[in-house]
Design a protein around this nucleic acid. Structure first.
Lengths: 207, 207
DNA sequence: ATCCTTCCCTAACAAGTGTTTGGTAGGTTA
DNA sequence: TAACCTACCAAACACTTGTTAGGGAAGGAT
């Protein structure tokens, strides 16, 4: 009679996601604050009130935690973006909606956005994080086409380099995650409003 | 007769800075590309064509390399900024000059700017890098006062939150280091011109 | 010819890293 | 009561990390 190997069943993906989410949220906080590489699994465990090894009951690696954090963030992000894009409004309205949606995502996923911002450039090289590259392509396409539609419809200026403008707009929106604190002075909508006012009409006084 | 201790004289700060600068430049490239924590001294040594231990003939720690990279960058940056501020031009001219100078610094110190951008938030906590905090205060003061002067002189809009505007302007300028490549399509001056046009006059078509 | 300086190599160190293995307290199910 | 599952701990593992110590080749100075 062959002795049954006591294969340890780990919950990993299947089991009750309650505790997983909890741990992923604290991990995301530490990742965002200290940087992914500077964050040891022992630090994460400390913040979660357990020991380093215990994390491996829930996840099978530090990297898989990072992957799950970024995946779930991007899933929700594209939920919002796709809804905006499918509305097929005018270019100006689309741009306003995209910006507002972005600041809302920052409000909800501050940590994940900060991580994405800091680490994505190094991560895309690994095939495990190839989905980041795909997301970036979709992202660029959405914003660029909106800007180009606006130029064609003569609601955006034609004398600006569209690609440069895209980069400026994109960066300014997302770096907000580095200083934004939820529950602070400004709501995401208020920040979006001010930002749109600046980008659309400029900060100079008109004569 | 007391045996003379063979104290190893290291060049460190005194000696010919030629090789030092060379090594610091390659270190800065690797730091910028992979992130400070993810960069091992062995990687730096690889890029420099030597072994890890040999780096310690020139520097006394990995951290001191980072410090020297950031220090020399900030020194040169403030050389340019102070010149602009001492000119005491009008607020709009000052803002234009600050932006242009910033893009020039990105052109010259792409790697250092990228490092500063990524790591400064975590570094300021250490007393060794307290000079970063001081630089940030000077930085904020320079930009904020320029914006406020502009609002007072009615050349900048009064209905925008100055602090929010400052953050937007600051971030967009510096994140350019993450995608800018010297010798590319746009010169620093051209990028500055486009950026200023966008920020000052907006991207919307005027009626 | 000797000495000294410069610049690097070889080889190791201790500390910290992500991860694995076996165990176990406590609740749930049979 | 017995078997089982969940969620964690305790202790170690192999490896990488920044750093150090001693040595040596090359070349200029004396």
């Amino acid at each position: 009679m062959p002795t049954k190997k006591p294969i340890r069943k780990k919950p990993q993906v299947t089991a009750a996601p309650a505790r997983r989410r909890e741990l992923l949220d604290t991990a995301a906080e530490v990742f965002a604050e200290q940087g992914y590489n500077a964050t040891t699994v022992r630090k994460i465990a400390d913040h979660a009130g357990m020991l380093a090894g215990s994390l491996y009951y829930h996840f099978d690696s530090k990297e898989s935690m990072l992957e799950e954090i970024l995946r779930s963030f991007l899933d929700e992000l594209w939920g919002g973006y796709d809804a905006v894009l499918e509305a097929e409004s005018g270019p100006r309205e689309t741009l306003e909606a995209l910006v507002t949606e972005s600041f809302r995502e920052i409000d909800r996923h501050r940590a994940a956005v900060a991580i994405y911002q800091k680490e994505s450039k190094q991560l895309v090289a690994q095939e495990r994080f190839a989905f980041l590259a795909e997301s970036q392509r979709k992202f660029e396409k959405a914003w660029l086409s909106t800007l180009e539609r606006g130029v064609a419809a003569q609601v955006f200026r034609a004398d600006l380099d569209v690609r440069l403008t895209y980069r400026f707009v994109r960066d300014t929106v997302w770096v907000a995650a580095s200083w934004y604190r939820p529950g602070g002075q400004h709501s995401p909508e208020e920040i979006a409003r001010q930002y749109l006012s600046m980008v659309l009409d400029g900060i100079a006084v008109r004569e």
